[in-house]
Nucleic acid binder design. Structure first.
Lengths: 247, 247
DNA sequence: GCTGTTTAATTGTCAGACAATTGGTTGTCC
DNA sequence: GGACAACCAATTGTCTGACAATTAAACAGC
């Protein structure tokens, strides 16, 4: 494998950095139009394709959006929560899959953050959010539900809990983390027999949220965490055994 | 302002998406070499510049790195915590600056997550981390410290606290959040008189961490949060008054 | 005043070329 | 035979110039 030495910053990345810091520092405001590609090319003394590569880098980070036509061009983008959320997920998934993160560590982080939301969620949850959580719990109780659908409902439930905290910044961070961890979670939730217990714990959580009972909610989340870790350990042990018996 | 409608996905972004999902799904593993630009161009039936734009998009997300020369090319990158951290900061800063996040909301999120680390940090902190925190507190006590240096030390202190939790996933999330919030924090910490109280609270936090006293640590963080909010409110009120008197 | 058409500006794409970099290969000299 | 230098091939980085597609605005006709 080649070493990860960044030898020389090429011109397109230099230009991208210059424009990026202009945006981050506020010299370019949201909605501002960047100079046209031809103008930028002149300005930086490079050709248009080079400028374009730089712009594509910024577009990949949702910093700008481009439009064709007269009065088109590149505009400083309004970074929405959705866009940030997607980036968070991509980064999270890769980070987890590429860094040999143990399941326990990822799980600990996820539940630590979720427990951080719990007090706020208990204090601020509204009827719609409670209803949403109850709906997901009911759906999860259906034995006919596919594993995929169960996992999706699981994500929706926790998402609703996090949103109940009523803090968009927390929602952004947490929702990204939870979804990034989903592939790992799927490995273990694809065993049907654990469903009943998970549903029971989800029920306890939503009950606690409705009753605004912070400590019960916290305990339920802890129980869910330890149960998750436990199931994972069991699945791993089973796999190891299977691998042995194959030999 | 032009509307934010994504009209047609252009070819370079289509190719970028295809390659990105190949990486995320694991069809391309870390260290794998992508086909050369010419080959990709043939494969997708486009020209080389178009392929290059797609590759630059991936490079902007640290998904690939490129090297020139024989046996050069584009390689699937190992996403390090550092790279993820940087992206987290960029995204966070933009999100905060572009979405009219109130200081209180950002502050609440930051401290909620930091309090989530506190129990782990109290349980696992080692001597080096405690020493690091104490060093920063000592530095902050120096009245000759510039405001910039004080803020940097503040970040370092909280970073050390988060790292003490010994969970790299949490560190990644938190460190990004704390640093992204720093520009907002700077607005208020640039008033010298609040330093003594902040230093005192930092002292209480590190003492609690050393004593493995979770509840004291939690309380100290709560106090720091409310004090931060309070100072911010005072600064805002003062500014408003000034603006009035100017009229 | 309204409608349809033209027009200009701008991004998206292509083709071909050359420069820069890097690893391997080959050949020469000791 | 071995060490060192020169060369070569592959690949990315960049340039030039061109054309297509798209869009808003100016304009002509009624």
């Amino acid at each position: 494998m080649p070493p990860a030495t960044p030898p020389v910053p090429d011109r397109s990345s230099t230009i991208a950095s210059a424009l990026r810091s202009a945006i981050v520092d506020g010299r370019l405001m949201v909605g501002d139009r960047l100079p046209s590609e031809t103008e930028l090319a002149e300005q930086y003394g490079v050709s248009r394709p080079t400028v374009r590569e730089a712009l594509k880098r910024l577009a990949a980070q949702s910093l700008i959006r481009t439009r064709r036509g007269a009065s088109g061009g590149a505009f400083v983008n309004h970074l929405s929560y959705d866009a940030a959320h997607d980036q968070q997920i991509t980064t999270g998934v890769l980070l987890l899959s590429m860094n040999a993160i143990s399941f326990d560590v990822a799980c600990e982080a996820r539940f630590a953050m979720e427990r951080a939301c719990a007090p706020l969620a208990c204090a601020r949850r509204n009827e719609a959010q409670l209803r949403c959580m109850r709906t997901e719990v009911a759906r999860q109780s259906d034995p006919g539900l596919t594993d995929e659908a169960f996992c999706a409902s699981d994500v929706a439930f926790h998402r609703a809990l996090v949103d109940a905290a009523g803090n968009p910044v927390l929602s952004w961070q947490l929702a990204g983390a939870v979804e990034a961890m989903q592939p790992l979670m799927n490995m273990i939730t694809f065993t049907a027999r654990s469903r009943a217990r998970i549903v029971a714990l989800h029920g306890r959580i939503v009950d606690a949220a409705e009753a605004m009972d912070v400590s019960t909610c916290d305990t339920a989340l802890r129980d869910l965490e330890s149960y998750t870790v436990e199931v994972h350990a069991a699945v791993m042990a089973q796999r190891a055994e299977k691998a042995c018996s194959v030999r």
